[in-house]
Design a protein around this nucleic acid. Structure first.
Lengths: 161, 161
DNA sequence: ATCGCTGCAAAAGTTTTGCAGTCGC
DNA sequence: GCGACTGCAAAACTTTTGCAGCGAT
């Protein structure tokens, strides 16, 4: 698996507080309790601005909230998914990935060899979703499509063998 | 999760033996050792003619080969995937699914609520695969696309809540 | 006879759950 | 204060691995 990009230094307190306030409001409007654990999970996802595993979210959030427990992160993520703030993507073999809804809609190309995940524009799949609905009555969720295969680098490596 | 369809009674010995012979030949031609464990794993997949989890393969194959071990099933499946006889699909949350290559190419629509898996014709995705290759250099594997969402029944149930 | 394969058991990794105490509302 | 949420620990589950012995070629 490729390593995550190095963490950028934490944002100044002003910005963090700003984000914090927005999230508090959003959770309250959606009718769920506002807890520091949920806010720090959201903050971790915002700062990373990409897909993260539960473990990575835990690592980052626990810098600001050391008592945070991994089970709580899973429970927070389940809730955030159920209220539509976070999208969960299973990319096979290992941990699920979570990302904020609100980023531009996209799907995932997952390399089975090196674990690289490429984000692919949602628009390319519009036709597929319409077909799934018309033919099978299946309601595809946005951001939840995964294509497995080999990235360019690994494909070349496989050919060379 | 919906239960698997009830197992049809085992085929008469003649047919089973026929299949057995074909598989033996195929494995030999591909240059791998022919073992009863591998043959019974293939047989289980042939008889079910659909996607199965490693556990389900184990259950069915062990009716004919009681000493069969789950670790061996995983190792056999890995090998069968690597030589192209079996396709593996990760449909998230739980066990991976395996199916014989040779069935008509298709992808999967996986219901996140009830676990139903609908098979979707491969042709619908031809455009997507071309795009993934042209834009990202990504080589999508056939049969390895998973779309997550809600089936018609579960969608109706969700709306009703 | 060789070397890969198998069975067994244990480990690894992710996610869930039971329970007592805590905290948001 | 009530009920939801959390931390902790243990369990559940899927998959992998070490190792000694067996078996396909």
């Amino acid at each position: 698996m490729p390593t995550d990009p190095p963490d950028p230094p934490d944002e100044p307190q002003r910005v963090a507080h700003q984000v914090h306030q927005d999230d508090t409001e959003r959770l309250r409007q959606l009718g769920v309790r506002v807890t520091p654990q949920r806010l720090f999970v959201l903050e971790a996802l915002e700062q990373a601005s990409g897909h993260m595993t539960a473990e990575a979210i835990m690592q980052r959030a626990s810098r600001r909230y050391p008592a945070l427990n991994l089970a709580t992160v899973y429970r927070a993520l389940d809730l955030l998914v159920s209220i539509g703030l976070v999208a969960q993507t299973d990319l096979g073999g290992g941990a699920a990935h979570y990302e904020l809804v609100g980023d531009s809609p996209h799907h995932h190309l997952a390399c089975e060899r090196c674990g690289l995940v490429i984000e692919m524009d949602e628009a390319l799949l519009a036709g597929l979703r319409a077909e799934a609905l018309a033919t099978y009555g299946f309601h595809a969720r946005p951001r939840h499509l995964a294509v497995f295969g080999l990235c360019a680098r690994c494909y070349a490596a496989e050919q060379g063998k």
